[in-house]
Amino acid sequence: MDAAEVIRTARCRAGLTLRGLAAAAGTSHSAIAAYEAGAKIPSTATLDRIVSAAGFALDWEISPRVRGDGRLDRGEELAAVVELAAEFPSRHSPTLEFPVFGK
């Protein structure tokens, strides 16, 4: 949920108009309208102040992001590369059975 949606949802659930929320938050109704339209993005402090003025609180949660494109996150990608590299013999291995290129 983005800031515009959070502000609009809080305002509507509180039953406030743009001017009512603006007065409660100590800002202008044009600023609230711009935030709700996504034309401006409020700072986290401003967002918290506006949502608090509507009678709600923001709860923040940080969780790992799962990509929907099938790619691995960086930590998982690194682990997969290290695991794959362990399957290949080293050049200095005495039992190297693959041709050495560049000689």
Rank of each mutant, 00 (worst) to 15 (best):
E87V: 09
A25G: 05
G26A: 02
A54N: 05
S52T: 15
V66K: 04
I7V: 15
T95I: 02
Y35F: 15
A10I: 06
R8D: 14
G26R: 03
L78A: 13
A33C: 07
R49V: 12
A53N: 03
E97V: 03
A85Y: 10
V66R: 05
K40N: 13
P94M: 06
P99W: 00
I7C: 04
E83K: 14
R65G: 11
V82C: 09
F56Q: 02
S93K: 00
A10T: 07
D73N: 14
S28C: 08
H92I: 02
P99D: 06
Y35S: 09
T95S: 13
I32G: 06
R91S: 07
L16I: 06
A22R: 04
P89N: 01
A54G: 03
D59H: 05
A31K: 04
R49Y: 11
I32C: 06
G55L: 03
R19H: 11
D69L: 08
V6H: 08
A23G: 03
E97T: 08
A54L: 04
G55S: 09
G15T: 03
V100R: 14
A37S: 13
R91M: 02
G38Q: 07
I50W: 02
A37Y: 04
I32D: 10
A37Q: 11
A25R: 00
E76D: 15
S28G: 15
A3R: 00
D59I: 02
R49S: 15
H92S: 13
P99H: 04
A79K: 10
V66A: 09
R11I: 06
R65A: 12
S93C: 13
A24N: 12
E5C: 00
A79N: 03
L21G: 11
A22S: 10
R67G: 14
A86Q: 14
S30I: 12
A79G: 00
F56E: 01
V81K: 08
P42V: 05
R74L: 10
T9F: 07
A4F: 03
L96R: 13
S28A: 12
L84A: 10
A33S: 15
A53P: 01
L96G: 10
D48Q: 13
A31P: 01
A85P: 06
A14Q: 11
V82S: 08
A22M: 11
R67H: 15
C12K: 11
T95W: 10
R13A: 10
I41R: 13
I41L: 08
T17G: 09
G68K: 09
